[in-house]
Amino acid sequence: MDTAVFLDRDGVINEVLTKRVKFVNKPSDLHLLPGVEEAILHLNQSGLKVFVVTNQGGVGLGYMKEATLHKVHDTLLEKLGKVEATVDDIAYCHHKPHEGCACRKPEPGMLLKLAEKHAIDLSKSYMVGDRDVDIIAGKRAGCTTILVGTEKAEADKRFKDLLEASKWIVEDFQASDKK
């Protein structure tokens, strides 16, 4: 079974709630955070699978159509592809907040589904997020949890951004691979 890094999207990969963009509701709203391309490429080169798991309640609430969300994700993949960074798969929950589905973080449904689909060992994998719902989902799935940014949550590790986190993840992955 493979080891993976599950990445939240908004606030980990791209800007959200900044002066430039409030929410990512169309491809032109997608602005990658500094170092993201390098971080994902580093994860790729280390042999880790990389997945995006993102709550997208804006679809359920009618702020965006599902087809537009797919275009946003296509734009993400294009931007990463310019430096040969790749994402193995993207899972999203389009349900409204508080709808009670099993996929919306803090529930672990998206991680569990991707793990089954791609033969991932969750106990050796990592969940990187910027909010408590990401960390809770990662813990419920059995992953090592990593918080990036300034929010408070009970994560296993904390870093200022994805680039810093990626360096630690690769070191930890390589050290555990030698055991």
Rank of each mutant, 00 (worst) to 15 (best):
E84A: 14
L147E: 07
V128Y: 04
I40C: 11
V83Y: 08
H94Y: 11
G11K: 07
K49G: 07
K96T: 13
E164Y: 11
V36D: 02
G47R: 06
A175C: 02
K82Y: 09
V170Y: 06
E78L: 13
M127A: 11
Y63D: 08
V53G: 07
Y126I: 06
D8W: 05
A155Y: 01
V72G: 03
L122S: 02
I120S: 05
K105D: 03
I40Y: 04
H95R: 02
T54W: 07
V36K: 02
V21W: 00
Y92P: 00
D8H: 03
L77A: 03
M127H: 09
I169K: 03
K79C: 09
T75G: 01
R104V: 07
L43S: 10
L114N: 01
E99H: 11
L43W: 01
D88M: 05
K160N: 14
T150R: 15
D156V: 07
D10W: 05
D134I: 00
V148A: 05
K22C: 11
E171M: 10
E84M: 13
D8K: 07
D89T: 05
A175M: 02
K82F: 10
D161W: 09
N55D: 13
M1W: 04
E171S: 14
A4N: 08
G142Q: 03
R9L: 09
K22R: 13
A119D: 14
L48Y: 04
K178D: 10
I13E: 02
E15S: 10
D134S: 03
G60F: 00
K79Y: 05
N44E: 01
K71I: 06
L7A: 06
L112W: 07
M64T: 06
K157N: 08
K26P: 05
E107Q: 15
G129A: 12
L77N: 14
K22T: 14
M127G: 01
L112D: 12
V24T: 07
H70K: 15
K178S: 13
A85D: 10
H94R: 14
D121I: 02
G142K: 08
S176P: 07
D29E: 06
K49C: 08
R20T: 06
E171L: 10
R9T: 04
C93L: 00
G129Q: 07
E66V: 06
E151T: 09
E164D: 13
A141F: 01
T3Q: 12
C101K: 08
G47C: 10
A175S: 12
G35F: 00
Y63S: 13
K19E: 12
K157Y: 15
A67P: 03
L17Q: 13
P108E: 01
E151S: 13
G11V: 02
E151W: 02
R9A: 01
D89I: 04
M110H: 04
L69Q: 06
P106Y: 04
P34F: 15
L7T: 01
K157I: 00
I40F: 08
G58M: 06
D172N: 13
G11H: 12
L147P: 01
G142D: 09
G11N: 11
F159Q: 11
R158C: 12
K117R: 15
H42D: 13
E154S: 09
G129E: 04
A155L: 03
A119T: 14
E84L: 12
V59P: 00
R104G: 04
G58R: 09
G149T: 09
E15Q: 15
I120A: 00
P34W: 12
A137S: 10
H31L: 15
S166Y: 05
